[in-house]
Design a protein around this nucleic acid. Structure first.
Lengths: 192, 192, 192, 192
DNA sequence: AATGAATGAGGTTTCATTCAT
DNA sequence: GATGAATGAAACCTCATTCAT
């Protein structure tokens, strides 16, 4: 009447912690991107990841915790991919171009991640917004070194985000074309 | 039991319909801007506007209806202010400059409105998102005529939005300085 | 600023009280029959009767009052129509037959009335149920004089109600055929 | 904090699913019978069954679902009790008599169930009414085989229902007496 | 470690009823 | 007498969260 777990391991192998976490974050990202933070429900996420709700709470503490973890992971991945796009000692223009391409590549390959990051830009309040703002600031810093201007750097970030979103609804446009346009703006801006 | 505002209203002056609506929209805007659509509650909005919940429903039908009305009003106001910023027959650069200033002015004076418009840009789903997208598209069209390029127009919109948000956290910067930077980008972009 | 009503009568003639009441009851009956007491709303009834809600309250005091008035009127009309169906000094069988036909005639011509009377028969609680029970009791009494048995009288009432409802969903059957069947039961019952 | 019923349950014994369901249906039946579908509230039912509202929704999906489940259960129980009242190969009169007694027995022992079934006969609309109508039709069919007449069968059902209700307010009358009267009507009707 | 089952709290919405004119 | 406009109260339902196993 009660299952025994004494002797030989039962059939269902216990997943390693990392993979469990991965699955949860994946499901959470899909839900958050599709319906927004509030409209996504822990029930859905648990069901979609095939893992029970108490596990979600065990791993992430709360809905906000799960959200924060997902945002964190997405942000880190984006930063990482941009940072390693070109060697540090490459010429400025090459580094910028590689960064832009990396950015667009990330958006293309991690739509939910990008979607959540972008939407959360503005959701005032909460420590999550701060995290996103911080990440954006770090990107802006990277650019500010190039543009020599905070304002221009922010403008460039906004232009990139806007184009990325526009691109998502015009998928025929090749990634390189988008990147070229952005580079044109950048090239001129640096000369201002 | 409720305070009256004027001199000798016999008992409790019935507010004219327009003013009531105005109050509700004001409160709704504040709530939506501060907490987002889902997290804002009709209870809060009713309390903040000093009007009972059933009235909210009587005027706007549903939470979505109220939201839509607010987005509509904010969008129209922004468009209007940009459209009338300069005479139609003024030189292109002047018109653009006036539009940019009008845009920044609106953001400055209607933070909740801007906040809601900007945040809801991406909240997928719902007919409201469509409305916001439509409005953004109309702005982009206005610009596309100037830039001769959809892509550049969208990039410019994004740059403007991003700068507007950056500016909100750096209020010391004068509006005109921001506008100048945007104009610089625009000026060059048109020459590309 | 305030309408004057001093000299000549304004255009919209004031309805006489009786007709107003009639209209309200008509609309109320339709609503109660169609959706039941609780599901019917005063808003609908007011709208359907073309008279404002405060008038409803002025005339009937409350929703229950309106309901009671409608039930009362319907019950009286049914009783009346059965009572006057045949002269008091007619032979028993003729009186019964006439009563049965009058009953079916009422059901046919006043569906909402009948519907409300029949449905509310059992909705326990409230003084309205008592009124319906009373009316039914009076019909049963009329019959008890004929059948010499309370029990049979109630059985006959039930049979009649059930047939009436069955008939409503089989309108092709002529009224007289239904009446004949009922009479057959009655005829035998009296001889038991 | 909640009382436990048995001897040494460690803390708060988790009720088996079946019993929980049973309790909910019991409380629901009482509420529906006493106040009708609309007037009964989920809050009351939850409180009366000592189980939280979300559980009600978890088990039955909605108020209508709970209602449907209760009606279904009551109807099945009534049908079952009538069907098994006498062996299929018993003489007609014996079967009918046993059925009538079973019917009265059910009414006597399951007042709320009967009350709900009887009231819902007419509540127009909804899939629940259809279910009740179906059950009544099946009873009528059983009878139609005996009476050789749809009309008489329906009349008999009505007579039975009416007598059952009359009996509920005259509990001194022995069940067998009521059954005898019904049988008398039936006996004659079959001979018509 | 892992989960089915349970709930307090709060959400949107509607309704009968009543002012103030 | 007559009504548009207003509201307190309560309804159904859902969700993040946590026991008890």
């Amino acid at each position: 009447m009660r299952t025994t777990r004494t002797q030989r391991p039962p059939v269902r192998t216990r997943l390693p912690r990392a993979e469990r976490e991965e699955r949860m974050l994946e499901a959470a990202g899909a839900a958050f991107a599709a319906r927004g933070f509030h409209a996504a429900s822990m029930d859905q996420i648990a069901a979609a990841s095939g893992i029970s709700k108490p596990m979600l709470y065990n791993y992430f503490g709360s809905k906000e915790g799960l959200y924060a973890a997902y945002v964190e992971r997405s942000g880190q991945a984006l930063l990482e991919s941009m940072r390693h796009a070109a060697p540090r000692d490459a010429p400025v223009e090459e580094r910028l171009s590689a960064g832009v391409l990396a950015f667009l590549g990330y958006v293309d390959e991690h739509r939910p991640g990008w979607s959540v990051l972008y939407n959360e830009a503005a959701t005032q309040g909460g420590p999550v917004a701060a995290k996103v703002a911080g990440m954006r600031a770090r990107i802006a810093e990277m650019l500010a070194q190039i543009f020599d201007s905070d304002v221009l750097a922010h403008a460039f970030v906004g232009a990139g985000e806007s184009l990325a979103n526009w691109w998502l609804t015009h998928p025929d446009e090749p990634k390189e074309a988008i990147a070229d346009q952005l580079m044109a703006i950048a090239r001129i801006s640096t000369r201002v």
